[in-house]
Design a protein around this nucleic acid. Structure first.
Length: 476
RNA sequence: CGGGGUGUGGCGCAGCCUGGUUAGCGCACCUGCCUUGGGAGCAGGGGGUCGGAGGUUCAAAUCCUCUCACCCCGACCA
């Protein structure tokens, strides 16, 4: 049906790229691995920023901005962090036509530069907590890149907090993961599984890493957000101590948490179809488009007047596109707006003017309805939030239908190498078992869900006792 | 880094094997007419010297050498 888009069934990966390019969300840049985020894609990011920023502020955080360049020595202060990030960093060695005394790393994440500053700012328990977030770009020299999902440079937000106690840091870590979960579900309409990462999958330098994991339409997992309890690792590395009430000195506890433009990829891969992008209404900067249809001039006059009146009426509450371009026929316009994921389309032709109706088409279901002219504003007001909810429900049903409880290694293998999906299975906690599964199936433990049933069992891999089930899946 | 592939108007491709006049096609673009309820049609038009360098030859998009770039599949990652 849609030209230029490979159907999902033919090649999912190609489909994804086609949607991104055709819907004009992003384009390849002259530099390998980096991309241009075009207005259609950036509009989504702006909405993500807007809503998340409010949620951060509501939980007591403030925004700040730290520099792009980090002295090489900073990057080397935290042992695990160096090991985790150094190989994938871009490094500036020259400036002003001269070789620099000390190389500067382009931030892959900002823990080090931020903690070097926190050292200056934190003296006493009265200075705590520090709850700072920053919206920024970061760079990681990835081997293989994919639009939005993994590019060398990407946009994200990173929260970096400092606390007096371990308990408070843990509470913050979980609180922010929950903010991400709420945001993913209520705004992106993406159901996620919140849980703790296994030791091998945790962030370089963290004590615990928590994540939210989403299922894409090809049944692979996508890590949609992470929140790390960094313990005192960075405080030790940067010697950040404070004086407590009792007069003693102790190291500060840290957290960091982030989501990136990858969420746009998640949004596409969760909801879109073979006709292009499907946006949940809350993520559509312009959720309604009006397409006028006419033949003769007299029809045009009537239709345009009718459509224009409706445009004005709806514009009081919504950002509406009035597609009055003369050079395209209606069919072309339908296809174009579908490709771009506009949630609601209103078609107005001579017949509608005659009958005092309009045609309303939902992007997610593609269902067409004739709606009375008088009722349309109310119907739009009511349909947008309903779409939002139904899209989440649909995605949740899909995730549920493709999550399988298994009791044996063979069953796990069958599912992962067969139909795919999430496998909920017992795991003893041993990294060796995790590795064995990965080597046999390429699936990894996505996380250990918070809401798993308290159920004893036997590890699918080694048979030793397990405290509960974890989620295995192939991931992006 | 391993494997595969591709570089020819803006995009997608043909031509290359078997060198030979003005390098062709589809889409897009411009003008006009005609159309408009699912990506219209007709006519006219603008735009490329074939990724780059070197070589062979009377003659190179085509053959040879070198080189650069990008894409896809794997190992690593938000």
């Amino acid at each position: 049906m849609a030209k230029n888009i490979t159907p999902r069934a033919t090649d999912y990966s190609k489909w994804y790229t086609d949607v991104v390019i055709q819907a004009k969300m992003a384009d390849y840049s002259p530099v390998k691995g980096s991309m241009v985020i075009r207005p259609n894609g950036y509009a989504i990011w702006e909405l993500i920023q807007k809503y998340l920023d409010l949620m951060f502020k509501d939980t007591g955080h403030v925004n700040a901005y730290f520099p792009l360049l980090i002295p090489e020595s900073f990057m080397k202060k935290e042992a695990e962090h160096v090991e985790g990030f150094a190989p994938e960093c871009a490094v500036v060695t020259h400036g002003g036509g001269q070789e620099l005394e000390e190389s500067l790393y382009i931030r892959p994440t900002s823990e080090t530069i931020i903690w070097s500053m926190y050292k200056k700012w934190i003296m006493s328990y009265r200075d705590l907590p520090i709850l700072i977030n920053q919206w920024a770009n970061v760079m990681r020299w990835e081997m293989r890149t994919r639009l939005f999902l993994r590019t060398s440079e990407f946009l994200w937000q990173e929260g970096h907090t400092a606390h007096a106690t371990a308990e408070e840091a843990e509470e913050e870590t979980l609180k922010m993961l929950n903010v991400y979960k709420t945001f993913a579900e209520e705004y992106l309409a993406i159901p996620v599984i919140a849980g703790r990462k296994s030791e091998s999958e945790k962030f370089a330098g963290a004590v615990h890493t928590y994540s939210i994991e989403a299922m894409m339409q090809d049944k692979k997992a996508l890590q949609a957000g992470t929140s790390h309890n960094l313990g005192q690792n960075f405080a030790r590395a940067f010697d950040v101590q404070f004086q407590n009430k009792e007069g003693g000195r102790q190291y500060v506890y840290a957290t960091s948490w982030g989501v990136s433009t990858r969420l746009i990829g998640a949004l596409i891969m969760t909801h879109s179809d073979d006709n292009g992008l499907v946006l949940p209404p809350k993520l559509a900067q312009r959720p309604v488009v009006i397409v006028p249809i006419y033949r003769k001039d007299e029809e045009k006059t009537k239709v345009m007047a009718y459509a224009d009146a409706l445009y004005r009426e709806l514009s009081e509450k919504h950002k509406v596109i009035f597609d009055d371009r003369e050079q395209y026929k209606p069919g072309y316009k339908f296809a174009e707006w579908e490709l771009q994921g506009i949630p609601l389309r209103i078609e107005i032709g001579p017949r509608d003017v005659e009958n005092n109706k309009v045609v309303l088409v939902r992007r997610d279901t593609m269902k067409k309805d004739f709606v009375d002219r008088q009722a349309i504003a109310a119907v739009v007001d009511e349909t947008l939030p309903r779409m939002q909810v139904e899209m989440l429900e649909r995605a949740r049903a899909f995730q549920k239908a493709n999550t399988h409880k298994v009791e044996s290694f063979d069953a796990l293998k069958d599912i992962i190498s067969g139909d795919g999906g999430f496998v909920s299975a017992h795991w003893c906690g041993d990294a060796a078992c995790e590795t064995r599964v990965k080597e046999a199936t390429k699936a990894t433990i996505r996380n250990i869900p918070f809401d798993r049933d308290e159920e004893k069992g036997a590890c699918v891999c080694c048979g030793k006792p397990s405290e509960g089930r974890v989620i295995f899946s192939k991931a992006y």
